Computed example of a mutant assay.
Amino acid sequence: MTDRAMGDAAESGGLTVGAAASHAGVTVRTLHHWDAIGLVRPSGRTTGGYRLYSAADVARVHRVLIYRELGLPLDDIGELLDAPAVDMTVPLRQQRAQLLDRISRLQSMVDAVDRMIEAANAGILLSAEEQVAIFGQRWDPAWAEGARDRWGETPQWAQYAERAAGMTPEDWRRIADSVATLENDLAAAKRAGVRPGSAEANALAERHRASIGAYFDCTLPMHVCLGRSHAADPGFRAYYDAIEPGLTFWLRDIIDANARDRGIDPDSATWT
């Protein structure tokens, strides 16, 4: 409240509820409620029975607003304002501790959002050197950027970014170890002549689909699209064929056969 308004309240015998509400930046309904619960009661009344707020009343309104901004409940504010002379810093210190805790939680949320943004932009929250160290010398860090360019506008990429934001290098290392084991099993099955569509091949195809599930929920049609995309990409062909010659197309074939056995026509599969 300005000095002029305080003076007006003193000289006129008080401000009406509308004027007091306007000066304090609250609604008339709020002042009516605070009067009803005994939090801020006007000192005077007009001859017609209307509320009149003195300078002291309006100052109390502002004190209530300060404490409410700090997050104190109205009941606690009333007790604080009406208490005899005590150490008023006690509740304020308690509230300060709560505010610091809230700030800490909000900062953690901001950090998590920042990591999601970074994951969505970078594709993976690892440096190129860390990627090669974890995924092996055959890994090309450009693949993450290429995947972002291709899939960055899809819900699956958003899901991946959300999961990747919470992954540590140790998490990635566990995933890499699991994928390496799967790739070795795929290569061994290819060398052993396992036929696409056989129970063993279908189980391997499902393991491959489950490995993609570490990044996003991969449906059978999506799996078919990925298998064919990898077979058409020279970089992926070089990666898989370095593990076992012809592995890329064999993997595509077992993915197609697995989908077909589960009621999906690979030739009409779409990214759904």
Rank of each mutant, 00 (worst) to 15 (best):
R4S: 06
G7H: 10
E11F: 08
G14T: 09
V17L: 12
V17N: 06
G18V: 07
V28W: 04
H32A: 06
H32Y: 15
G44C: 11
V58D: 02
V58K: 00
R60M: 13
V61M: 01
R63N: 03
I66R: 07
E69T: 13
E69H: 15
D76N: 07
D76P: 12
I77M: 06
E79M: 09
E79F: 13
V86R: 05
P91D: 13
Q94G: 13
L99K: 09
S104K: 09
M109Y: 05
D114N: 09
E118W: 05
L125K: 04
E129S: 10
Q137M: 12
R150A: 14
T168F: 15
P169R: 05
P169Y: 04
W172M: 14
R173F: 04
S178Q: 14
V179L: 14
D185Y: 03
L186T: 00
G193Y: 06
V194Y: 00
R195E: 10
G197W: 03
S198F: 04
A205I: 06
A210D: 15
G213W: 09
A214K: 12
F216N: 01
L220T: 08
H223S: 12
L226D: 00
A232P: 02
P245G: 01
T248Y: 01
I254D: 03
I255D: 01
R260D: 06
G263T: 09
I264R: 10
D265H: 03
S268H: 08
